[in-house]
Simulated scan of single mutants.
Amino acid sequence: MQLFTLAANVNLYDAPTGDRLATQGAAARFLWAPALQPAQPTARLYVQLAEDEYWGWLDPSDYPKLQPATTPYQPIPCDRATVVSAIEAIIEFCEAARRVPHEYLWGGTVAPHYDCSGLIQASFASQGIWLPRDAYQQEAFTTPIAPRGATIDEVLPKLERGDLIFFGAKEKATHVALYLGEGYYLHSSGKECGRNGIGVDTLLPSADPVGTAYRQQFRGAGRVASSYLPMPNFCAF
């Protein structure tokens, strides 16, 4: 396999055919892919992003956006103090994304259209802090605020601005939001059960149907303590 950098944004799909996104790769990210030949194949390539180890299928039309990396990918570690110093910039990233025309996009990690975990990942990455890609992975990566099964009333007093809030079924987190303080959180929610984009809701009892629906799916909260570091020799190929 060969390490590339992306000269422009790309879509990665979740299958060799079809239009369902797995994720997106922003310009300047590192990506593992089979070495390209002069006669490039016409089928999608299975590739892996370096920073979060996430995989997907790349369209042949995007092969010209792959540039052989001139330096190895070197993750940059950080501690909780670094994260804390970046929280306000992370929140402003999300607020700025909210202010421009956009809609919810499953698999979206590149402006202007995001899914829930894509927005969270992109906002932290804007400050050099990498998180895993999906909501359930982000939940596993963060430090729990309270034991699993704790109620909103038990968790709420312990939350700090910039913590992550997780929602979903008992088995798995399927949605993530960024805590703003005073019970409010910012998130990118879907078209059928949400706001079709980035909005603010509350963990407190409310007559709003969106906030009420997510309250019923509350799983817990986590605190980002460091940047995600891929395993040594992590390429999955």
Rank of each mutant, 00 (worst) to 15 (best):
L12W: 05
L12A: 06
V155Q: 01
T143C: 13
Y46L: 12
L49N: 04
L105V: 06
A236S: 14
A150Q: 04
R80S: 15
G199I: 08
G56L: 03
Q2K: 09
C78S: 14
T143A: 14
F141M: 07
V224R: 04
L203F: 07
V10L: 08
A221R: 11
K65Y: 06
E103C: 15
D62Y: 07
D134S: 11
Q48R: 09
G107E: 02
E95K: 15
L229C: 15
A33F: 09
S206F: 10
I90S: 03
R161F: 10
T70S: 07
P157S: 00
E139H: 04
I76E: 09
A207S: 15
A33H: 06
Q40C: 09
V83I: 13
T23Y: 01
V210H: 12
L156P: 13
L178G: 05
L186A: 09
S189R: 12
L49M: 12
S123A: 15
Y104R: 01
F93L: 02
P75E: 02
T202Q: 11
F166Y: 11
Q74M: 14
A169I: 11
L6Q: 03
P232Q: 01
H187D: 07
R148C: 08
A33I: 07
D52K: 08
I91K: 10
H187R: 10
Q2C: 04
Y13S: 01
I120T: 13
S85C: 09
F4S: 01
R161W: 08
C193P: 06
G149W: 12
Y136G: 03
Q121W: 03
T70W: 01
T5Y: 04
A177E: 01
A111D: 00
P38G: 03
S206E: 09
K65Q: 07
D14M: 11
W130C: 04
V47D: 00
R99L: 11
Q138R: 14
N196C: 06
Q48L: 08
A15Q: 00
L21N: 10
R223K: 14
I129E: 14
G118K: 01
E139N: 03
L21P: 13
L203E: 02
G149H: 11
P41M: 01
L204P: 10
M1H: 11
R44N: 01
A69C: 05
T23C: 11
T174P: 05
P68E: 00
P60N: 00
G56M: 02
A86N: 13
D208Y: 11
N233F: 10
F141V: 09
L6H: 05
Q40D: 02
E154P: 12
K172N: 09
E182G: 13
E53D: 08
P60D: 00
A111M: 00
A177M: 04
C235D: 05
Y228K: 10
